[in-house]
């Protein structure tokens, strides 16, 4: 059970009010919901605490629960190569203020994941070193994986790329 998981025990001891253990009926993976304000602290704790040592950020993505409030959920999948244990963090974000602190200071690899989430869902990551679109192009209007983006909306055609910085 989730409460027996040493990671969750440590998290509850340190961040009691900030986190909440939630069930994950599909894959039974231990899952914790974190308050938006403390995501950076929680991640840094998981990364640096000696016998936790979550050194691999396997995935960072987002879900748009359009009919729920808060609407967005940013999901982190963490893994410890040395200890072999894993955990999932979830953070709920309000529609009117979809911002969250970046975790690039904890895992450098989070950089492009966060750019992807920004690209497709419009979540802004505070203090991100280079928050640009990553897969789509700069002139794209809107964020296409939001559930309220019309499925057949067409983008304006551009003859030339304006921004040439970075990936061409």
């Amino acid at each position: 059970m989730a409460e027996k998981n040493p990671t969750i025990k440590k998290l509850l001891a340190k961040f009691g009010g900030q986190i909440e253990v939630v069930a994950s009926p599909f894959d039974k993976m231990d899952t914790v919901r974190v308050k938006r304000e403390s995501i950076l602290d929680v991640c840094m704790f998981l990364r640096t605490e000696d016998d936790l040592d979550y050194d691999l950020m396997r995935d960072l993505t987002c879900v748009d629960y359009i009919h729920e409030k808060p609407r967005f959920e940013v999901v982190y999948h963490l893994y410890s190569i040395y200890n072999g244990h894993e955990i999932r963090l979830k953070v709920r974000l309000e529609e009117r203020d979809p911002t969250i602190d970046t975790v690039t200071s904890v895992w450098v690899g989070a950089n492009w994941y966060e750019r992807e989430v920004y690209d497709f869902y419009g979540i802004r990551f505070n203090n991100h070193p280079d928050l640009r679109r990553i897969l789509l192009y700069p002139e794209f209007v809107g964020h296409p994986l939001r559930k309220d983006y019309p499925i057949d909306r067409e983008q304006p055609l551009f003859e030339e790329r304006k921004e040439t910085k970075g990936v061409r």
């Binding site: 057949d152 909306r153 055609l157």
Partner: peptide, 13 residues
């Protein structure tokens, strides 16, 4: 591909 990413016919360009 009637979606956000694909040009709906190359004759638009």
């Amino acid at each position: 591909y009637r979606n956000y990413s694909v040009v709906q016919g190359v004759d638009r360009i």
